[in-house]
Design a protein around this nucleic acid. Structure first.
Length: 569
RNA sequence: CGGGACGUAGCGCAGUUUGGUAGCGUAUCUGAUUUGGGAUCAGAGGGUCGCAGGUUCAAAUCCUGUCGUCCCGACCA
């Protein structure tokens, strides 16, 4: 490929719209172009990278007996009605109607479609297991698309679905996908960690997310410094601190003027915040609930949602709080009636708690669970903090890091197969639902995550495995015929041996070419100049470490070819 | 959806407070000189100032509405 023909509009200045490194660099290196919020054209360089990532995915999916297929992007509403998700999916789903006013959506995911497909053809247990995947555009009308390809509204996803006879089969499919994902992200050159993730109402050890570690990541992950435990902060469990039980004292009302926050109350009473209890109000579907958590702790809403088993969860509005006769800043569990009370298990071990008195400027001291109020639900509701003791080994401490979710593996069990009748007949002639799993990889996000992890002040640093081109040849003087001839020959020889090479034949000064080469991030740069040719050498420069080698012109093609192959391993 | 900011040439920006018919840098095109880390000189082209109303002799500038974009938050199979 000649640089004069390459459609790669590089920019000198940083576009104002981009905030994080991968977004800036993809725009500057001419990889992507925004058409509207959250929708991008993948320009030729990006598309080459995407195709390489996809090729790795295909190899690994095929390697675990996955078969690629392609389903329509447009999906009929019937299937979503059948699964029950049409009314609940909400505004994130792009919906449309055809000329007959029939309803459709642009697929945000394909569980319904694939389950329908398998239901259509599956008869006997002898056909199982089935593992099918596709690589395709997905549509999610995000409330707030951001960070370029990190959170876009149209994006390319590999989604695989497995169908097994039973949970043992599912576990095999799940383990196979887990292994394949680890190999895929390793081959792409990512620094990643699989972490335990929220599996929603389905429960169990049902999900892992593959997190590319990067400061710009939207997710917080915690991992133990003493064992292999790693989890998304949303679900990270913990062993509660069991305070030694004290003798229950008599309840006491104290005036706490204008102490509407935990800090203010604790200060006023001269107590540490961990002896106070925070009361939070939530709207869980139609129900108003009161949630208690230790004053110095933070509530984990995912845990709360799972404990309540609700679909919608939001902090109650000030109006709703007032309507239940509660005074914001002075809410407590004593004396309330008709409101479900959910408490963090840590609170259940606290003696002589400080809580709001449900009167303006008043708190209650020496309140005790059981004697003074009852809890409807006791559960682990606390957001884990860095430094907490590991819930798995009980010895190590949890470290916090930011992560970009590039993939997720998820056990669906029979949630969809029952509703959409993906059933089979077993040896005994009994009809049973298949046990399903689903496994996603964000292809564009993987590319963006790699850039987040692998760049410097000059540009992108691609690993050889997914670089858009492997080698760039830079002639430093376009008037020197010996240089031109040498570059042309080298380009032809490399291309003939299967190397992907760009010859920068633009009429630009070498500085411009060097800067663009660094920006685009070709793994190997070959510089051909007058002084070098007089000595009979060309110069190799490696993008990842900046090391320079001088190679005899006659041996350069073979040497570079071998280097590329070595770096691919 | 709440809060904040912004929309002027491909890109980055000034001009808006105080209304007078648009400018800088860069990129692009032509020519010359240059050629190992974003060259220099000379010349040229490119903008109904997001859009629609309104005020005014006159609007990028003031008013109203609208569309779009970005950031923080909430949300996220």
């Amino acid at each position: 490929m000649r640089a004069t023909k390459l459609y790669a509009p590089t920019l000198r200045e940083v576009p104002a719209e981009a905030e994080i490194a991968s977004h800036k660099l993809m725009l500057m290196a001419g990889l992507i172009c925004k058409i509207t919020a959250g929708m991008y054209t993948y320009l030729p360089l990006a598309w080459r990278v995407m195709k390489k990532i996809e090729a790795i995915i295909r190899e690994e999916m095929d390697g675990i007996d996955g078969q690629e297929l392609m389903m329509p992007i447009v999906q009929p509403s019937d299937l979503w009605e059948a699964s029950g998700r049409w009314p609940v999916y909400g505004e994130e789903m792009m919906r449309l109607k055809d000329r007959h006013q029939r309803e459709y959506c642009l697929g945000p995911t394909h569980e319904e479609m694939i389950t329908w497909q398998v239901a259509h053809d599956l008869k006997s247990y002898k056909q199982l297991p089935i593992r099918l995947y596709q690589i395709q555009s997905k549509f999610r009308d995000e409330r707030r698309p951001r960070f370029g390809l990190m959170r876009s509204r149209e994006f390319i996803m590999k989604d695989m679905y497995s169908f097994d006879r039973d949970e043992m089969g599912l576990q095999k499919s799940y383990d196979a996908a887990y292994g394949a994902y680890s190999r895929i992200f390793s081959r792409c050159g990512l620094n990643f960690r699989p972490v335990e993730a929220d599996s929603g109402a389905i429960g169990g050890s049902g999900s892992h997310e593959f997190m590319a570690l990067a400061d710009s990541g939207e997710a917080e992950v915690l991992f133990c410094d003493g064992c292999h435990y790693a989890a998304n902060v949303e679900i990270a469990a913990l062993s509660p601190e069991k305070a030694a039980a004290e003798e229950e004292k008599a309840i006491e009302e104290v005036v706490t003027p204008a102490c509407g926050t935990i800090e203010a109350v604790a200060n006023f009473l001269g107590l540490p915040t961990n002896q106070t209890v925070k009361s939070l109000c939530y709207q869980a579907d139609e129900e108003f609930v009161l949630v208690l958590i230790r004053g110095d702790r933070h509530l984990n809403e995912v845990k709360l949602q799972n404990a309540l088993g609700c679909v919608e969860l939001a902090m109650a509005t000030d109006e709703a709080i007032a309507a239940h006769g509660l005074i914001k800043g002075f809410i407590g569990p004593v004396g309330v009636s008709g409101i479900k009370i959910v408490i963090d298990e840590e609170v259940s071990f606290m003696s002589n708690q400080v809580v709001g008195a449900n009167q303006k400027d008043c708190h209650l001291c020496n309140v005790n669970l059981g004697r003074d109020y009852k809890a409807d639900i006791i559960a682990d509701l606390r957001l884990v903090d860095a430094g907490d003791v590991c819930p798995h080994c009980g010895k190590g401490h949890l470290q916090s890091a930011r992560g970009i979710e590039v993939g997720q593996v998820f056990k669906l069990y029979t949630k969809y197969s029952e509703k959409l009748k993906a059933v089979y007949i077993d040896e005994n002639g009994v009809e049973k639902p298949t046990v399903m799993g689903c496994y996603g990889i964000g292809v564009g996000r993987t590319m963006a995550a790699l850039i987040e992890q692998s760049h410097d002040d000059y540009g992108i640093i691609w690993p050889m495995a997914i670089a858009p081109y492997q080698v760039v040849i830079v002639p430093v003087n376009d008037k020197d015929e010996a240089i031109t001839a040498c570059c042309e020959k080298l380009s032809q020889d490399l291309t003939a041996s299967g190397i992907e090479v760009v010859l920068d034949d633009r009429k630009e000064r070498s500085g411009v070419k060097f800067n663009d080469a660094d920006l685009i991030g070709y793994p190997i740069r070959v510089t051909v100049g007058t002084k070098g040719l007089e000595k009979g050498i060309v110069e190799l420069k490696y993008r990842h470490n900046g090391e320079v080698e001088e190679i005899a012109v006659g041996e350069s093609a073979a040497y570079i070819s071998d280097k590329v192959k070595e770096m691919l391993r």
